[in-house]
Simulated scan of single mutants.
Amino acid sequence: MLTLSLIGIGCGDPEQLTRAAVQAINAADLILIPRKGTAKSDLADLRRTICADVLTNPTTRIAEFDLPVRDAGEVDYRKGVDDWHDAVAATWSRAITSHLEGDGKVALLIWGDPSLYDSSLRIARRLDPLPEIEVIPGITSIQALCAAHALPLNDIGEPFLVTTGRRLREGGWPQGVDTVVVMLDGSTAFQSLDPAWLDIWWGAYLGMPDQIVMSGALAEVGPRIAALRQQARERHGWIMDSYILKRRP
């Protein structure tokens, strides 16, 4: 039987790997490393570094493949994502059958954790035939962001909301919460909010050597974050960031 292991590898620091992740990497017959174009070659490099550091099983093979690009111009957002997931699933299937004959264990090293704003589980369930799916949890970008700022995420006895930049920009501040975690923000959605009484804790390239963090009153540091984010994106060709907003009483 084919088993697909989705292994959370944290946010960039190989020291964040759990023992379970190391064991799962070494238990794999085949490790697939996705390439996302030259602009995001750092992500493939990190996966190669992790394999070089912890892989001791001489029979485990490593294969790389190119991921299809999502059509960002698709008017229907959900349909565009569904079509992209279908294309990624087909790419996974081709990569598996090209490098593994019959049964075995295939591993994908998932940035952060497969449970949070990651599509690997949804894509895995589109494979035909459907493999047995194994998930190895990893450190999320939210955990890494809180650690970088030495910040407790929730206030005592209070809830928080995790959302996307698109939802924050379109819907404004969510009702019923004073703490909001924002991920997948392509264009600094915090600039669409009234900055009065808001504080921000922001981080980019968390866990990587180029990690950048900044915090403070949104009215004061928001413009600086936007400028720094643009500079970092131009320098690297890509950026992966997240931030926490808290509303003061």
Rank of each mutant, 00 (worst) to 15 (best):
A90Q: 12
V75I: 14
H99Y: 01
R61D: 05
S98Y: 00
D103P: 14
G73S: 08
T97C: 14
Y77H: 14
G80A: 04
R70Q: 09
F65C: 05
I62K: 06
D83A: 11
A89W: 09
E74H: 14
H85T: 01
V81F: 03
H99C: 07
G104P: 03
A95Q: 01
V69E: 15
E101F: 00
F65R: 05
K105H: 01
W92Y: 15
W84H: 15
G104C: 11
A90H: 11
E74M: 11
L100V: 11
S93W: 01
R94P: 06
A72F: 06
G80K: 02
R70G: 07
S93M: 13
V88E: 02
T91L: 06
D71F: 03
R70F: 02
D66T: 13
D82F: 14
E74P: 02
D71Q: 11
H85S: 12
T59A: 15
A63W: 04
A89C: 08
D82H: 11
R61K: 15
V75H: 14
L67A: 13
G73A: 05
R78E: 13
E101H: 13
A95F: 06
V88Y: 04
K105F: 00
R70I: 09
R70D: 03
V81H: 02
R94K: 13
T60F: 04
K79I: 13
G104D: 08
K79Q: 15
E64A: 11
V69H: 10
D66M: 02
G102S: 00
V81G: 03
D71G: 03
E101W: 00
A95T: 04
D83R: 10
S93L: 10
T59E: 14
L100G: 05
D71V: 03
A87G: 11
G104I: 09
V69K: 12
D103H: 07
L100P: 06
A90C: 05
D86L: 07
W92A: 00
S98K: 11
D83I: 07
D82K: 10
E101I: 00
A63Q: 08
R78W: 06
A72M: 13
Y77M: 06
R94D: 08
L67H: 12
S98T: 15
D76K: 07
L100I: 09
D83L: 13
P68K: 05
P68I: 00
P68L: 03
A90K: 09
V75K: 14
G73N: 10
V88P: 02
I62M: 12
E74G: 01
P68Y: 04
D82M: 13
T91S: 15
S93C: 02
K105R: 14
D83F: 01
D66G: 08
D71S: 08
G80T: 05
